[in-house]
Amino acid sequence: MATPIKVLIGGVALFLLLSILGWWTAALIVLGALALPVLAYFALDPSQRRRLRAQGRKRLGS
């Protein structure tokens, strides 16, 4: 799926959250969705983080 389509879908989802749930609830959901991968990354061992970074660099080079 192309990146602009993903952004569009995310924008529509955010608009629906804002209109249905209210500003504070939508903001908490968005912050939770952003914080979850960050917390999962910091839960990894240093060797696992190194391997994950190396894998990301390998994909960028190919």
Score class of each variant (00 low, 15 high):
residue 8 L to N: 03
residue 58 K to V: 00
residue 59 R to I: 13
residue 23 W to M: 08
residue 49 R to Q: 15
residue 54 A to N: 12
residue 52 L to A: 10
residue 1 M to P: 06
residue 40 A to W: 09
residue 31 L to R: 15
residue 36 L to Q: 11
residue 21 L to V: 12
residue 49 R to Y: 09
residue 52 L to E: 07
residue 42 F to M: 12
residue 46 P to C: 07
residue 9 I to W: 03
residue 37 P to H: 12
residue 53 R to Q: 03
residue 54 A to Y: 04
residue 4 P to N: 11
residue 54 A to H: 05
residue 9 I to P: 00
residue 31 L to V: 13
residue 62 S to I: 10
residue 4 P to E: 15
residue 21 L to G: 05
residue 59 R to V: 13
residue 1 M to C: 05
residue 58 K to R: 03
residue 50 R to I: 05
residue 4 P to G: 10
residue 57 R to W: 12
residue 16 L to N: 10
residue 58 K to D: 00
residue 34 L to V: 09
residue 10 G to P: 01
residue 45 D to K: 15
residue 25 T to Y: 07
residue 29 I to F: 11
residue 30 V to W: 04
residue 7 V to D: 04
residue 57 R to G: 08
residue 35 A to C: 12
residue 45 D to I: 01
residue 11 G to P: 00
residue 45 D to L: 07
residue 61 G to M: 04
residue 18 L to M: 14
residue 52 L to H: 02
residue 1 M to E: 10
residue 20 I to G: 04
residue 59 R to W: 14
residue 17 L to T: 01
residue 42 F to G: 03
residue 50 R to C: 02
residue 18 L to W: 08
residue 60 L to V: 02
residue 8 L to S: 05
residue 18 L to G: 09
residue 1 M to H: 10
residue 32 G to L: 12
residue 49 R to I: 06
residue 20 I to S: 12
residue 46 P to H: 08
residue 58 K to M: 00
residue 54 A to E: 15
